[in-house]
């Protein structure tokens, strides 16, 4: 659809109401469309926003993973999306194939995904402390392809569904409908953000990681084990990614190759947020989610990703270091 549909949409509900008032037919079909039409424009917007927030929350969690690793190592970890995939696929495997209860499946999946992240760091990243950032990017791309390949081999190429955590009955909220799973997504995302904040600001190892992100050499001078902090950052990021994957999977379903696109979106969220491992990236994710959903609903569904990226480019041209980045914190 063209850009002009933006205006058309705003009036569409009015038009429809007018049309149905004429009562052109008595069939059940028309009745159902009358019911559908009763939703007005502001309700529509609420629906777009809620959809945007729920996808955005997932992007935020993935973006945080990017930011945490970037801040402690300077690496953009392109394998981040694969941990999201692992979260979903492992939960599917334990829950549906092995028949383990949901809560235990989730714990097991987080543990295995985190272990994968740690192993990846030990085998592929740590031996290369002196490599150029670009070589490290290639390594993470290689790792991403490798993990995806293994997942394809183990679970096949099919898409798999995971049951919702608690029921499929839609809930009504300010004229829009959401599923209980959306509440899980919002709740768990907020919980993780809070834990993340507490960890980085109040625990010793969290403070040490922040120190590393400001200045690695200085941190090691005051006795912080930088290598250990790097390992920690990979562990936290992969755990976070896997949680994002498993809370989203009941809505979005999962397969071996969902990680690529989600990883890119997460990267995008982190960039809008200025690579902060805090609230900036969270907002970045939400902005991206809402832009996509408004773009699809109001402008053009075909170009919705392009719209999101055009706005991203404009943001970068105006604020080259993300919206939420304070000017002075340059990290080289």
């Amino acid at each position: 659809m063209d850009i002009g549909s933006l205006a058309a949409n705003g009036f569409s509900w009015y038009m429809m109401q007018h049309q149905s008032a004429q009562g052109d037919s008595t069939s059940a079909l028309t009745l159902s469309s009358v019911k559908a039409v009763s939703m007005n424009f502001s309700h529509q917007i609420v629906q777009y926003l809620l959809s945007g927030f729920s996808t955005g929350a997932i992007y935020s969690l993935i973006g945080l993973g990017f930011a945490i690793i970037y801040n402690s190592t300077g690496i953009i970890n392109f394998a981040q999306g694969e941990f999201v995939m692992l979260g979903g696929m492992l939960t599917y495997f334990f829950l549906t194939v092995a028949g383990i209860p949901l809560f235990a499946s989730i714990i097991l999946s987080v543990i295995i995904a985190t272990a994968t992240g740690v192993i990846f760091e030990r085998l592929a990243i740590r031996p290369l402390r002196n490599a150029t950032p670009l070589s490290l990017v290639i390594i993470t791309i290689g790792g991403s392809i490798f993990i995806r390949g293994i997942a394809m081999l183990v679970w096949g190429k099919d898409t798999h569904a995971i049951p919702m955590f608690s029921g499929t009955e839609p809930l009504f909220l300010a004229g829009a409908t959401i599923l209980p799973q959306h509440l899980w997504i919002f709740g768990i995302t907020i919980l993780i953000i809070v834990i993340n904040k507490l960890y980085f600001y109040y625990s010793i190892s969290g403070k040490a990681m922040r120190a590393c992100s400001y200045n690695r050499n200085a941190a090691s001078l005051v006795g912080i084990d930088v290598r250990r902090m790097v390992l920690f950052s990979f562990a936290i990021s992969s755990a976070m990614g896997s949680v994002a994957g498993m809370i989203a999977a009941p809505l979005t379903m999962t397969s071996y190759d969902v990680g690529v696109m989600l990883g890119l979106k997460g990267f995008c969220a982190a960039i809008i947020g200025g690579m902060s491992s805090g609230i900036g990236t969270v907002l970045g994710g939400l902005i991206l989610g809402v832009l996509e959903s408004l773009g699809a609903g109001l402008l053009s569904s075909g170009y919705k990703d392009a719209i999101a990226f055009i706005i991203l480019l404009l943001i970068l041209f105006i604020r080259p270091r993300g919206i939420f980045r304070k000017a002075e914190t340059e990290r080289v």
Binding site: I76, L264, F267, I271, I310, L316, F317
Partner: peptide, 26 residues
């Protein structure tokens, strides 16, 4: 675009690539 540095440049070029790709498709 070249005013940007490092990963911001990476993101911007990536975004440009995706915009072109979507346009070719649409």
């Amino acid at each position: 675009i070249l005013k940007l540095k490092g990963h911001y440049l990476a993101m911007a070029t990536l975004g440009f690539g995706i915009i072109v790709y979507i346009s070719l498709n649409e």
